[in-house]
């Protein structure tokens, strides 16, 4: 069983986002980047499947984007246990999902796979999710919002769960090869020591492959804006006691909170 995992970095939301001078994109100058959390779940699932008796290899692909640090992302994959890492194409800025899917499809013509896993979504996939876009390009079946993956012993099918609203889950059997958009992994993504990642960045082989013939999203971004937060909320400030007093009074008006109601 050969697994391929597609990963990327996204802006770290712990830091403030700003809009660029054009008003149509993020100001990337001061952004810091982190691995997209759903992609990390996809990698963890691939490693678990490989190590739970199904064997095979885990190959991680990421686009060669100049923003952020794709080498660190791929070295982290190796530190966690991936067998092989490949940097695909060359991009000044993170491309849209359609372009990313086209680039991955180009590279995957040269990589063997039985199961392709990626994050169900990313915080910046304005033009849709890479998983189903790639699958359709490669004429493979795809399932999104996957929370459970079980391989059949004969390795020709996989059973997965797809999540719906209200905690309802559909179970599907998919013929391999297939593409899965992973919502969460059974285990918290494993930890890789920073020292090990730094060492691998110096010593490990990160392969490079061409990919990405400017597919384009077909979307025209007219404007980007930071929505006004707190514009409708009445903000309460003060020390914890003053805040508690005010909230208690608001709840009391609605007959909630025993002490203030009496």
């Amino acid at each position: 069983m050969d697994y391929v995992v597609l990963l990327k970095q996204v802006p770290d939301l712990a830091e403030e986002l700003e809009i660029d001078a054009d008003g149509t994109g993020l100001d990337r100058e001061w952004l810091s980047f982190v691995a997209s959390e759903w992609d990390e779940y996809a990698l963890e699932e691939a490693l678990l499947l490989r190590d739970q008796g199904h064997g095979g290899t885990v190959t991680c692909l990421a686009l060669g984007v100049e923003t952020g640090d794709v080498d660190e992302l791929l070295a982290t994959c190796l530190a966690r246990g991936a067998d092989r890492v490949i940097k695909v194409g060359s991009f000044e800025a993170p491309p849209d999902s359609h372009t990313a899917a086209a680039a991955f499809a180009d590279a995957l013509a040269h990589v063997h796979y039985d199961l392709i896993l990626t994050g169900v979504q990313a915080i910046d996939d304005l033009d849709g999710q890479v998983g189903p876009l790639l699958a359709t390009r490669l004429d493979l079946p795809h399932v999104s919002v996957v929370t459970h993956i079980a391989l059949a012993h004969h390795h020709t099918t996989v059973t997965v769960h797809q999540e719906y609203a209200g905690g309802i889950v559909a179970e599907f059997e998919a013929t391999l090869p297939a593409v899965l958009g992973v919502q969460t992994s059974r285990e918290t993504p494993r930890y890789a020591p920073v020292s090990r990642i730094r060492q691998l960045m110096k010593t490990a082989t990160i392969e490079a492959m061409a990919g990405g013939g400017g597919a384009g999203s077909g979307l025209v971004i007219e404007a980007m804006a930071i929505p006004e937060t707190g514009s409708t909320a009445e903000m309460i400030s003060g020390n914890p006691q003053a805040i508690a007093e005010r909230i208690a009074a608001i709840l009391s008006e609605r007959g909630i909170g025993t002490a203030v109601a009496r």
Partner: peptide
């Protein structure tokens, strides 16, 4: 303070919940 939850909230507090929750419990719990 930039959390999107404040865009749907009627009242907002920018604070650590670990400070606010015990104070509120003490206040309403009497």
């Amino acid at each position: 303070a930039r959390a999107p939850i404040f865009s749907v909230a009627h009242y907002g507090v920018v604070a650590d919940l670990l400070d606010v929750v015990p104070a509120l419990t003490a206040r309403v719990g009497g």
